[in-house]
């Protein structure tokens, strides 16, 4: 029973990490920036979601509100910060580290602004359905209706995203601009705006991850919560495991990471909460530096 429990917890957490990793990958593919502020943007969108829940009382209205808010924030960041960054700091000794430093600064700005507006204390977001575990043959699982709902919702969102990417013109434009920006521009795609769109999609995905991470945890929201530190680290690690360039890789990276963390916490020690992801990341990077699905050339950051 422990085994099944751990597996289900890991899968649920893994889908949330996968969403976060997808948003990292979307940003990486559109502008070649690893966005360390992604979790910060997810935090901000979750606060939007909190406002919506507390005013309108429905999680299902709050979720799209958070997604739209997240998309707008991400688009603004791309238009204001990233375009300036490309213009000003793409030469000299700082060129390699400038995007990293800028997105970290952004993370700090978002965190402190959120703390200024909403305060450092915990706010509660009530999940749409119960987080009490299912009972099978008298034993209670940790797996709950809420976790099942998260699992299903995330899978549906991923399906929609993959249809958008594979079957629509927008998806084609997104893929073309990531793959060969010059050629895409030649064939009439407005690459700049496609990039902004990539960021916006990432912002929306991050918002969902933030909302679910909050209700899947203990339901509280604060700028310094463990949930968001974990989201920050896990999104990055899951994306790297998957190879940073591949959406399918991000999904698998997230699931692998979620499962591994769940099993380590269950069978090794529950105190290894933050060290486990780090060890997993190092192991993957040593065995396969380009990630599971990354092409060898993708390593050249």
């Amino acid at each position: 029973m422990d085994l099944l429990n751990t597996f289900l917890i890991g899968i649920t957490a893994g889908t949330i990490y996968a969403l976060m990793a997808i948003s990292m990958v979307l940003v990486w593919r559109s502008t070649r920036v690893v966005n360390f502020a992604q979790a910060g943007m997810a935090l901000l969108s979750t606060y939007f979601g909190y406002e919506a829940v507390s005013r309108l009382g429905s999680f299902w209205i709050a979720l799209p509100v958070a997604m739209i808010g997240g998309a707008l924030v991400a688009a603004l960041v791309e238009i204001i910060l990233i375009r300036l960054l490309v213009k000003h700091s793409s030469s000299g000794p700082i060129a390699g580290v400038a995007p990293i430093i800028a997105t970290l600064g952004l993370l700090g700005v978002i965190r402190s602004i959120s703390a200024m507006i909403w305060g450092g204390q915990d706010l509660r977001i009530v999940g749409p359905i119960s987080n009490d575990g299912f009972t099978i043959n008298g034993t209670t699982l940790v797996f709950s209706p809420l976790k099942l709902l998260i699992l299903v919702t995330v899978l549906v969102l991923m399906l929609i995203l993959s249809i958008v990417f594979q079957k629509t013109n927008i998806g084609l434009a997104l893929r073309a601009s990531a793959y060969a920006p010059e050629i895409a521009r030649l064939s009439g795609i407005k690459v700049d705006w496609v990039r902004t769109l990539g960021w916006a999609l990432a912002g929306a995905a991050g918002a969902v991850a933030g909302m679910f991470q909050t209700v899947n945890g203990n339901g509280t929201l604060s700028p310094d919560s463990i949930e968001f530190s974990l989201l920050l680290v896990s999104g990055f690690i899951a994306a790297v495991i998957g190879g940073l360039d591949s959406l399918i890789g991000a999904v698998i990276g997230g699931l692998v990471l979620g499962l591994m963390i769940a099993f380590v916490l269950m069978y090794v020690s529950s105190g290894l909460f933050f060290i486990a992801p780090f060890v997993i990341l190092l192991t993957v990077l040593f065995i396969r530096p380009q990630g599971i699905f990354g092409a060898k050339a993708a390593r050249r950051a």
Partner: peptide, 13 residues
């Protein structure tokens, strides 16, 4: 073995 953002993320973790 790592460079740029990979190293930054690893040390962040």
């Amino acid at each position: 073995r790592l460079s740029g953002p990979y190293l930054a993320g690893t040390t962040l973790a």
